[in-house]
Amino acid sequence: MSDEWEPKIVGFLCNWCCYAGADMAGTSRMHYPANIRVIRVMCSSRINAEMIIKAFQTGADAVFIGGCHPGDCHYVDGNYRTKKRIDLLKRLIEHIGIEPERLRLEWISAAEGEEFAKTMKELRDDIKKLGPSPLREIAREAI
């Protein structure tokens, strides 16, 4: 084991797609980096700005959101709302000095275990290049 720094990634995964995709990656024994801490939600649109901001404040190096493909949301149009919300939030965090690359939204279906594993690798590599979140040093303990 190396002592190399590994990013901490908070992942909000939609129960109907990305969470099942992650499950599939696991059950098919695909290898992907263990940087992600998964929180299961019933729809990607359940994720509000507060949750993401709080994750960054408490020291997350990146926040990942996995939702159903456009048109596939189980609540019809939740993911369209998610997309707009995340696009704007990326701008907002950039304005105050957090790299927008630290916030990522992807559409991953329940059948795309491989896609999930690939995305996790990419994300981890990208964040490793970026380095630890600048908020880490000022992050205070959650609650």
């Binding site: 709080k54 404040q57 907002l92 105050i96 908020l135």
Partner: peptide
């Protein structure tokens, strides 16, 4: 208040 929670929540809600 914990950086940057207060101000980001407010800004985002007012967008």
């Amino acid at each position: 208040p914990d950086f940057p929670v207060y101000h980001l929540i407010r800004a985002f809600h007012l967008a």
